[in-house]
């Protein structure tokens, strides 16, 4: 009885008793969620166009952040370090196309997935070989620290992250919807063979999507690196992007954002209000539970592609 009370009734009593605190927790959660979305976006871009689930996306986040912070520690100015890191990510896209995707053409999805696993290990090793395994602090002059907004306490860094993510998503959604390259990327996502037959050069398409994913990884790396420090565990943030993708749908850019918001908000609220009753650490597993429920009832996610079936 006591357990049921602490799970079913007490949290709501707390929320009703101090709504401002609840809003604060919720806002914090939503802002963290946006950061998850940043990572999820990279997955969506590659998956949408090539049905390849890029396991290396998380490592790409770490790798980009390491490149950036490593150069800055050597004394390079921020703009130069940013420039070279962008260059490296573009180079990475070309290398992945030439060395991994091209020899693997027409292999099944699971084999391509395994190949990205390999890319992930390779990048992880390369990044640490070049810049070591220590925790680096990334200081790009992004404002951080607490800020009171209408009586609610928020972190400035989180706000910047949300703004950046919002901007990125809008840009990507417009790109996919309205440009001819975006249209072709959607076409390739639908039917490789048909795209090939109408004269879409697939190699170019792969380089474009991996470049986009690489640059998104850089942005995510900057935001996460600024808040957590650039360290190995950054690549594990990618694991949180998985439930985000399952919720939002693997092929939807807006889905990645909404999925991130839901995951961020629910896990934070769960942790603060239900954590004591359930023994804490709710934040660590709640997102996966949510993903499991979605897999059971809506496997294509909230915004996944409609599955067109003809009879």
């Amino acid at each position: 009885m006591h357990f049921l009370y602490t799970v079913l009734i007490d949290p709501f009593v707390q929320i009703a008793g101090d709504p401002r605190f609840f809003v604060e927790v919720l806002t914090g959660g939503l802002l963290t969620g946006v950061m998850y979305s940043l990572v999820a976006l990279g997955f969506v871009i590659i998956y949408k166009a090539s049905r390849v689930f890029n396991f290396a996306q998380g490592t790409m986040v770490l790798f980009a952040a390491l490149m950036l912070v490593g150069q800055m520690e050597m004394g390079a100015p921020a703009w130069l370090a940013l420039g070279t890191t962008c260059g490296v990510m573009v180079g990475l896209a070309f290398a992945v196309e030439r060395l991994v995707l091209r020899p693997m053409v027409n292999q099944s999805e699971i084999i391509l997935f395994m190949a990205t696993l390999g890319i992930s290990f390779f990048l992880e090793g390369l990044g640490q070989l070049m810049w070591g395994g220590d925790v680096h602090t990334l200081e790009l002059g992004i404002p951080s620290g607490p800020l009171t907004l209408g009586g609610i306490l928020v972190n400035k860094l989180d706000l910047v992250g949300a703004a950046v993510a919002g901007l990125l998503v809008t840009a990507l959604a417009l790109f996919f919807r309205w440009t001819s390259v975006g249209r072709v990327l959607r076409a390739v996502a639908d039917d490789h063979q048909a795209a090939l037959s109408v004269g879409v050069p697939l190699k170019v398409v792969w380089v474009i999507v991996w470049t986009m994913a690489g640059l998104v990884a850089l942005v995510a790396g900057i935001m996460w690196g600024s808040s957590l420090g650039v360290q190995f565990s950054l690549s594990l943030v990618a694991l949180k992007a998985l439930p985000v993708l399952i919720l939002g749908g693997f092929t939807s850019v807006p889905g990645a954002i909404v999925g991130g918001l839901i995951v961020g908000a629910t896990e934070k609220v769960g942790e603060v209000f239900w954590g004591p009753a359930l023994g804490g650490a709710v934040e660590n597993w709640f997102a996966y539970l949510l993903a499991l429920i979605f897999l059971l009832f809506r496997p294509q996610g909230l915004f996944g592609e409609r599955i067109i079936e003809r009879v």
Partner: peptide
């Protein structure tokens, strides 16, 4: 680009694209 194009067996339309978007992909090459 040389002017030879195949219309594949079984039509192979891009199902999640509109009819017009389908047609426009043909102009990409």
């Amino acid at each position: 680009r040389r002017g030879v194009i195949q219309v594949m067996e079984g039509r192979h339309c891009f199902e999640h694209l509109t009819v017009e978007d389908n047609l426009l992909t043909g102009a990409f090459a």
